[in-house]
Design a protein around this nucleic acid. Structure first.
Length: 472
RNA sequence: GGCCCUAUCGUCUAAUGGUUAGGACAUUGGCUUUUCAAGCCAACAAUCGGGGUUCGAUUCCCCGUGGGGCUACCA
């Protein structure tokens, strides 16, 4: 069997869309699984839609997610002669023809078709032009496009790995523009030529391409080439079930980096949108995905991008991450507050409650604040009294002072307080709630002993004393 | 309008011509606990409708209906 060769062929018309990126991931997985080649091709044949920086964005996204390519990037704009050559060849073979119809005429016939509720499409006026006429108008310098000559009858069918056999009546297809009047190729022409020239074995692209695939198959046939194997996975949908777009939330693949997601988590999440190993597993390493991924297990129906599940998955990945790595990854979100305390200890405090790396910022804010802002009443536990709280806090303060600098670690302070509470027959809640609020200023926070360890003895005592002052 | 694709809990999905239709997220409750998370346990929740085929269909076929995509000298 020949080497599997797949390509990812985005257009540089903006940032890389997460949906396109998912397709790229499918491509990449298929290539790696089969020890094949993953090729990056930039389809920049529409000058009007070109966006500066788009190529860089695509490259950076692939890099951040770790999708390495074996060949490319190949730019279609640098291969224009090739497409023109093949277009000419196809005209000679009778599979295509020159069309001189103006855009105005095209608009007009479309309007008439719509008004009469007829299928829209080119009416084939130039298809029957006499060769002499064509020649004459060509030499006269008239603007033209080259159109594919679609057969007037018959069925075009092809096999799709995810959809099975798909067949379309040729009469429902109009004559596709192959070469535009600016002599740039359209997608239809360029990608077929490139896929053939690059010996692409599997074309994996989103479902939106399904309706034009018969045209492509017909083109292969006209050239005398064998079409690749097709796989059209279903679209990624927004919450309203339409194609995922900006109004649904983040659509740029790289935006997930800015939002604090881990590449592995995003990859794991998007692969599950339309694919699964047919068992109960949900979390996969990249290696497992390469091993398990299979085009034939791709789903036919579109899947809604469910950000809540992504958050959960990302949280799972964060929990599994070694503290050292997590600390490093959190740095960008800590606003430079990375010297104040032992960063690994800080991160340990929030390890279990972070869903995104960016969460660390709000979660840890109280640690870096010199003046905690909270109502004094918060210090008083539910059903407790102010006087008892003040007394308890004072006792706690004395205890903290009595603990040696070197013993100021969570396990040790915890033990001291537990014994103290037991001895004095106090309640855990009565002592620990005020203490925790005193050092965090929050109704909800990580455990008080862990927090105090991070803060250090001096700062912990300072905060407790401030709390007492606040109540008095 | 035409063409194409599609249909299992709210969401992502598994399964089989005969199952208590399974898992995960979310939700709710419980346990744990100094609070909140995390964790553990539990609950809630689905085969779009109608016809066939069949002893039996959620599964196979047809027709509806819903949803989506395409319908550019964009990709």
């Amino acid at each position: 069997m020949s080497t599997v060769r797949v390509r990812f062929a985005p257009s540089p018309t903006g940032y890389l869309h997460i949906g396109s990126f998912r397709t790229a991931f499918f491509d990449w997985l298929w290539a790696r699984k089969n020890n094949g080649k993953f090729i990056l091709r930039i389809e920049d044949t529409d000058r009007s839609r070109y966006v500066p920086g788009a190529v860089e964005n695509i490259l950076e996204a692939l890099k951040w997610y770790g999708l390495d390519f074996d060949e490319g990037p190949i730019f279609q704009s640098e291969r224009l002669d090739l497409y023109r050559k093949y277009a000419r060849k196809l005209v000679e073979k009778g599979g295509a023809y020159h069309c001189f119809c103006t855009e105005e005429r095209l608009d007009q016939i479309r309007k008439i078709q719509e008004a009469n509720k007829l299928p829209t499409g080119y009416d084939g006026l130039c298809r029957t032009l006499a060769p002499e006429d064509v020649q004459r108008r060509l030499t006269a310098g008239e603007a033209y496009v080259i159109r594919q000559k679609i057969p007037n009858e018959g069925l075009t069918s092809f096999h799709d790995i995810v959809r099975g056999q798909v067949a379309v009546a040729n009469t429902t297809l109009d004559d596709t523009v192959l070469l535009k009047s600016d002599s740039f190729p359209t997608y239809h022409l360029a990608h077929v030529i490139d896929d053939h020239e690059m010996a692409i074995t599997h074309v994996i692209r989103a479902e939106e391409w399904l309706p034009s695939t018969p045209r492509h198959v017909l083109l292969y046939k006209a050239f005398g080439w064998i079409p690749p194997i097709y796989a059209h996975p279903a679209l990624v949908l927004g919450t309203d079930r339409s194609k995922l777009s900006k109004r649904h939330g983040a659509t740029s693949a790289l935006e997930y980096r800015e939002l604090g997601y881990l590449p592995e988590a995003v990859l794991n999440f998007i692969v599950l949108l339309g694919w699964n190993p047919k068992d109960d597993r949900e979390i996969f390493t990249r290696e497992e995905l390469i091993k398990e991924f299979d085009l034939s297990k791709l789903n036919k129906a579109g899947a809604i991008f469910n950000i809540e599940k992504l958050d959960w998955l990302n949280g799972q990945y964060i929990k599994k991450m070694p503290l050292k790595d997590l600390a490093e990854k959190c740095k960008p979100w800590l606003d430079g507050n990375i010297e104040t305390y032992d960063l690994e200890k800080v991160v340990a405090l929030f390890h279990d409650r972070m869903k995104k790396l960016s969460d660390i910022r709000e979660l840890s804010a109280f640690l870096f604040s010199r003046e905690l802002e909270y109502l004094g009443d918060l210090l008083i536990p539910k059903g407790g009294e102010k006087e008892d709280t003040v007394r308890g806090l004072s006792l706690s303060c004395d205890i903290l002072k009595s603990i040696g600098e070197n013993d100021f670690v969570a396990a040790a302070t915890k033990k001291v307080f537990e014994e103290f509470i037991k001895q004095r027959a106090l309640t855990t809640k009565g002592i620990l709630w005020p203490l925790r609020v005193a050092v965090t200023g929050l109704a909800q926070s990580p455990g008080v002993f862990e927090v105090m360890e991070v803060l250090g003895k001096a700062e912990a005592i300072r905060r407790v004393e401030m709390a007492i002052g606040r109540l008095k």
